[in-house]
Design a protein around this nucleic acid. Sequence first.
DNA 1: CTGACAACTGGCAGTCGCTGCCATAATCTT
DNA 2: AAGATTATGGCAGCGACTGCCAGTTGTCAG
Lengths: 251, 251
Amino acid sequence: MSTTSPGTVGAASREAAREASGEAAREAAGEASRETAGDCRPGLREAKKARTRRALIETGLRLFHERGYGNTTTEEIAASAGVSQRTFFRYFPTKEDVVLEAMGSVDEVLIEHFLARPADETPFEALCNAMRDHWETLGRTAMHHFKGGAAEIIAESPELMRTGMTYCRRRQTRLAEAIALRTGTGPADPRPELVSAIFFAALANGHQEWEQAGAPGLDGLLRSFMRQLELVPEVIGSDWNTPAADRGAAG
Amino acid sequence: MSTTSPGTVGAASREAAREASGEAAREAAGEASRETAGDCRPGLREAKKARTRRALIETGLRLFHERGYGNTTTEEIAASAGVSQRTFFRYFPTKEDVVLEAMGSVDEVLIEHFLARPADETPFEALCNAMRDHWETLGRTAMHHFKGGAAEIIAESPELMRTGMTYCRRRQTRLAEAIALRTGTGPADPRPELVSAIFFAALANGHQEWEQAGAPGLDGLLRSFMRQLELVPEVIGSDWNTPAADRGAAG
DNA sequence: CTGACAACTGGCAGTCGCTGCCATAATCTT
DNA sequence: AAGATTATGGCAGCGACTGCCAGTTGTCAG
């Protein structure tokens, strides 16, 4: 993977582990494997696990923010969270997953905005508008209180942002679920996943553009995001069939 | 020093190295640093480097194909190519780059088909059609001779295919260049990069779908690719604004 | 041809992500 | 409280990747 790579038997086991953690992420604080059905959390064990998980994420983000993602080792994160490195890797299959999971909680806010958009909007339109709504929320409220707190830390750390964008494909499924929910289609419909993939691809492009422009502030990032998103229909539709040389080079 | 870069610490240096190698890839066999300008290849040194590079790629692909990507170490590749591991990493910043570069040569064929498409087609349309042309070429000619040979090896190894798709974002720029060439726009136009990103995102989705279906043959992969690609305009355009529940849950 | 200079290479030691294994301790069950 | 589960820590180890230094090889002037 980007920062490192797998040890023993290669990529296959990694992928498996990653998916497992993906599912585990959302059942993090509940869901006994016993017959104690539903929401009742059966005990102290689960609570402790949830606490450890949260501690890992918090200290992880903090350290990433302080010394940079690449300059923070998993051992340091584990130690700062009061567990062993071995335990760290029982909670997160890879180091990136700490960032990804934090980013996931940010995505949830986006998803809420997305689901709140008027029903006459196309899924993709709703996504674009939700992005703008989301950003405003981020800029207004999140800067003040420091509760869930992932958003600001990520927003303030270009390196974290980059990590989150690099692996954005792994965030796509969660958004696809929300899209499927909104449109009412079933899990066999490939379209939600596709819109989600395109959305994130556009964001990744925007992020890259933003970095190449010298990362001119967070507003600049939003502008890049929105520009790319707005370009998508133009570029896919029949608008852009300029055979050659229309709006001059460097246009 | 074209292939390597002096890493300092952490992920940032990694990224830098990767981009450096990306540029180096295409100037692999030429370009002295002296004032001997142009195409003249000034010597034995460059030739040797090119030969080593090719050897690394060939043995790398062969070993990946034989024992799997994850079960092949960089040390084995280096040894089989007759160089040290240290030298391997002077040619390729990461192990994946071997696959990526091989895949790049496959992409070149796609790009040729793309550039050969009639001018009245939208860039995205041309891309879709080129994909189909490309695949036919792959299935017909490449299976017979074993010259450049990357295509078949990759096509026959799901693990390599997966690696290539996982990091497909790093292939996007080359394709974007071709798109810009065809449309005649300059490097400041963000649209080629965006189409390229969307194209690869759709492919990645198709690949994922294909894997989840149990990887039903290469024709199945092409079908998944094409299906996703064809869905893109439908999903982005105004066709799909089903507020809720139209074509029944479960697809 | 030769010697200075630059680029290329190998080897070593070390860091870090990540994993399997096993003994121990904590929690849950009855 | 005994026994069955499950979480944890520590250790040893693999493998990707890097910096450093010394030795080799191609290059180019004289």
